[in-house]
């Protein structure tokens, strides 16, 4: 037996033979609610933020390797597809941070009643969308404007 929970599945027929009892339905019998969505999305954005951070480390490594590899990295971050990935990284970091802050509040023993949870969910979505999209847009715009200005200054 690999999983301790398997022990709970052992049952017996009326003739005494052992059987594996069926699993009761769980996910499929519930209507998807915002709290469920925010719970699983906190994990998904955590994984996405890790993947983005690994790309961030690749950026650092290219910087440490020299000007040639950094130029390649800048080509990637300047590419529209790269910008989408960057925006996705920023958004998932903000998302995971907001989820984490809610966990801190719950760990401190606050806002954990059903009504409070349902009140806070839409607020969290608003903060994520507002702050995340603003931050992503602002960072990408500042970087883009600065990069094009420097390219122009060098051209002249």
């Amino acid at each position: 037996m690999q999983d301790v929970r398997e022990a709970l599945y052992v049952g017996s027929r009326s003739d005494g033979t052992l059987i594996r009892r069926p699993m009761s339905p769980h996910l499929q019998v519930y209507k998807m609610r915002l709290s469920m969505f925010l719970s699983i999305s906190n994990r998904i954005t955590g994984v996405a933020a890790t993947a983005g951070s690994a790309l961030g480390v690749a950026w650092l490594a290219s910087l440490a390797s020299g000007p040639k590899s950094f130029a390649t990295a800048r080509k990637v971050t300047g590419n529209p597809l790269g910008q989408v990935v960057l925006a996705g990284w920023i958004l998932s970091l903000v998302w995971h941070t907001v989820g984490g802050l809610r966990h801190f509040i719950w760990d401190a023993g606050h806002r954990y009643d059903k009504q409070e949870l349902n009140e806070d969910g839409p607020v969290a979505v608003g903060v994520i969308a507002g702050f995340g999209l603003t931050l992503a847009a602002a960072l990408l715009c500042v970087s883009g404007v600065r990069a094009s200005r420097r390219a122009k200054a060098k051209g002249i």
Partner: peptide, 20 residues
């Protein structure tokens, strides 16, 4: 890091290595 990226975004190799 977010503040640094606002200062550094779009900068070229010399500036970023100097910063690092």
């Amino acid at each position: 890091f977010v503040v640094q990226m606002f200062r550094l975004g779009g900068a070229d190799y010399e500036d970023v290595t100097k910063w690092g």
